[in-house]
Computed example of a mutant assay.
Amino acid sequence: MIANIDYQVFQWLNDFAGKETFLNVVMRFFAERAEYIMIIGIILYWFTRTNTNRMMAIQSLIATAVGFGTSALIANFFYRDRPFVAHVVNQLIPHAANASFPSDHATAAFAIAMTFYIVRRREGKVWLLFAALIAISRVWTGVHYPTDIIAGACLGMVTAWGVHKVCHNWKFANQQLQACITLYEKVEHKILPKKHSREL
């Protein structure tokens, strides 16, 4: 029942790739390149040189790594073929015929976006929308089912929340991250002139 509904929603959304072709360029970008913008976002937040943003940047990377690890375990136990393996689809981007569930792109995008949202609510809403477009584009371009991206999004958000809670509430984890930031800043201050920047 769920699999049937999942495929019907996939087919409805993927059919747009054959009808609304003017959007295909946009969807290809979100499916293949948009996550680089999220990486750039992490780098930019890091180089604002505020402790809050640097802690947020580290947490987003940890959440992504944990999300990827969890996703790999799930894929081993609940293997699912890609849509283009089992069906005739509008496939707009090349992709290996590996595990489809859950979506790594959705996991990473929502792990990063949710971390940003937890720390910086106003901007975080934009990042969550950006992550949603990445997830939807993976169905549009024919490489994931809707439940793949839903599972990936949930995994990413839960991981981001969990990592933030651990880093915020567990004194040892907080101290270790702070020590990493302090060590980096000692090196940074020797290379770059220290600039006084306010907390954003």
Rank of each mutant, 00 (worst) to 15 (best):
T52G: 14
M55K: 14
T70E: 04
D81I: 03
A31H: 08
Y36E: 01
H87Y: 09
I39L: 15
F30T: 01
D15L: 12
S60W: 00
R54V: 05
R82V: 05
L44D: 07
V89W: 09
A57N: 15
F22G: 07
F78P: 10
P83G: 13
A31M: 08
I58D: 00
A31Q: 12
I39N: 12
L61N: 04
M56H: 01
I42F: 08
F29Q: 01
A86F: 09
M38T: 02
T48C: 08
T48F: 01
G18C: 12
D81T: 02
L44N: 13
S60C: 09
Y79R: 10
T50C: 03
A34I: 07
A72I: 13
R33M: 10
F29R: 02
W46Y: 13
H87N: 11
S71K: 07
L23T: 14
P83C: 05
E32Q: 09
F84W: 08
V88H: 06
L61S: 15
I40W: 01
F30P: 00
I42H: 04
M56W: 00
F29Y: 09
Y79T: 14
S71L: 01
F22E: 09
A63I: 00
P83F: 06
I42M: 12
R82E: 03
A34S: 14
N76E: 00
V89Y: 03
T64W: 02
H87I: 03
R28Y: 06
S71R: 13
L44Q: 07
D15A: 12
A34E: 09
I74N: 10
M55W: 12
R33I: 03
I62H: 09
N53M: 08
Q59P: 15
V85E: 13
A75D: 03
A72G: 07
F29H: 00
A31T: 12
G69T: 06
I37F: 06
F16Q: 08
E35V: 11
A63G: 02
A31C: 15
E32G: 03
D15W: 05
V88I: 10
Q59V: 05
F84G: 11
A63E: 15
V89T: 15
A86P: 04
P83E: 07
I58C: 00
T50D: 01
D81P: 10
T21R: 10
E32L: 08
F84D: 14
N76H: 11
